[in-house]
Design a protein around this nucleic acid. Structure first.
Lengths: 197, 197, 197, 197
DNA sequence: TATGAATGAGGCTTCATTCAT
DNA sequence: CATGAATGAAGCCTCATTCAT
């Protein structure tokens, strides 16, 4: 009980320090010395938990994705009206991206094949979760079903990602609600007269 | 006249070589040696045309953006139906991103303040051009005007960017038309009966 | 009595593991982690028995030398014909080298002054024992006495060392007998007719 | 003419500096910084001429061996009495070892397979040259032919190597002549009466 | 203008050593 | 006595940048 925690908390501390150092900076701009210092551990300690710098960043990227994936499944399984679930997802996903988009951006640059594969694995699982959420919307008759799910996903996620990125850079306020409403306007199934969501 | 051309072609050759080397790789993964070799020039020559590595990448990012900006203005000024102009933009913009999204991704990571500012300058001008295109759509009554232009831009560009990125990675075919239709479905102004675009 | 044994056996286990790991590898190629693992003890335990890495290797080199020295004295004191004693020494010394030449080779590289001195001490004692053996041969009239003892030692030991080394590398069979016979052919005192060894 | 020389002289300077720094020290004790400084070049320059530290040391070991090999062939081809040629070889080989035995010693420890192979290649060629010299002695009737050449080689070279090593350590004078005479005493073919060399 | 040999700052990484348990 | 997680000094090596030609 005592033993397990410090170990995880040490690795966790490193990852936490790394995410922050990493936001808005290139892979090569972040030095392992910095990370070690920020995490309050020795440089050598990093190598007890990570194979090398790239591995550290891969785990950084993976870390959190899984949590989000889990959360999406939860949201999809909720009982509330579909639009509510969708908007809830939008908000939580935006929060997630706000914290991770820097790391994700770098991972999209990473070449190193083995590292990349691990990341993609987890990333794909998250995408599948989103697909599930959208598929459910179609099955429930809440979303139009004359588009591919993957197109809907792009239409939903793409704008959020772009907005978050620019917000991070320019400091623009994130009019998330508007983006979601726009998506809804285009994606909601055409109800027969008299209906509304 | 004669002098200018070889110079530009040499600088152009370097940039061309660099873009390709850079796609899908991190800033630090691409070595100046490689670029020089690929461009068929000596290593020292790079410094005749670029202040340093970051400057080279900044110009790389800028290069092409201006052309795209110009093109957007042209498209916006065309006489055809708005939907056609919009879709034309979508196609050309997707082509542009397909070639540049790697570089753009890295630029979004670059920290170096002065370099960044140059890039952002040009980037912002391109964004303004897109705004102009969308604004025109509203003014012409083709697009709904109950959203901010910047939101519409995200809704239009975000999905394309996301799709392109994934396509580059997974090799998925790009169902660009579907994305554009989806945007149109949500963004087109509700016409009174009897209208069409 | 009971206490002494496990301790020695632990130290012995470490040394035994180290000799093997060390054969044919450089000082810096052998990691203390390896030694600890091979010896079946914790890394920290090494420091209970040895001051540091160099000390461990010094003891490694010393370990065995003393036994050999002792044995040479025994052989020299035997009653058998001198040639027999000489050849017995040759065989046992070759065995000794076969197990240790790697370690000895590294010790010949070691710079660290204090460590070196300890090794040289023991090494010199072994050389003296060989000198004693050879001197006895001269005194008994079995070896020619128109050469310095130290030259004879080189002539006897040098070829064996060289042979052993190459054998270790190439896997050549060790024609030890031939080498000893050659030495004997050159070093045996010219007998007056009718004598034999 | 001007170009060729500096290049070779630079690589030569590095090797020269390295041999000296290396004598009597372990592989890991010699730092590349030292070598660069001693050679009067920048650290990075080392990597223009050598793949890495091990490669540098391999070339160090190889460098000179080839010269010695060549020289042995020359000596073997001389017209003088065989004993003279043999002793000439002895002296020059001793000189060679005096300068290189440290390096050779380390090479005998090196594990790294590819590097090792290169060294062994050249080393074997030198051994073959010695064999040639000794074979010639047998063919000319100067050396006894009831021993294998390789045994004679050990008997000749082993003592020299041992002597040189100890001399380097203790500062003992090298009684090379005595060693050679001893070898000759044992290895010279028994002449029929009235003959002498 | 063009080159590429030379450089050296600085990063990643290793590993001997320590020390709290 | 025994351990092995943690450490950080220090080395190898890379690579952007310079400069003599």
């Amino acid at each position: 009980m005592k033993k397990e925690d410090p170990k995880e908390s040490k690795q966790g501390a490193i990852l936490k320090a790394a995410v922050e150092l990493f936001e808005g900076r290139r892979f090569d701009e972040v030095k392992l010395d910095e990370i070690a210092a920020a995490a309050g551990v020795g440089k050598g300690t990093l190598y007890l938990y990570f194979k090398n710098k790239e591995d550290l960043f891969a785990q950084l990227a993976v870390d959190g994705i899984d949590g989000m994936t889990e959360r999406i499944h939860e949201i999809a399984a909720m009982e509330s009206a579909y639009k509510e679930r969708l908007f809830l997802f939008g908000r939580e996903f935006a929060d997630f991206l706000a914290k991770r988009h820097g790391v994700m951006g770098v991972m999209n640059q990473v070449q190193s094949v083995p590292v990349d594969k691990v990341f993609r694995n987890h990333h794909d699982r998250m995408i599948e979760a989103i697909h599930e959420l959208l598929q459910k919307g179609m099955d429930e008759g809440a979303l139009r079903n004359d588009f591919q799910v993957s197109e809907l996903r792009c239409a939903l996620v793409g704008p959020i990602l772009l907005k978050i990125r620019r917000a991070a850079r320019v400091g623009e306020a994130i009019a998330l609600k508007a983006l979601l409403e726009f998506f809804w306007a285009g994606a909601a199934a055409k109800r027969k007269k008299g209906q509304h969501d």
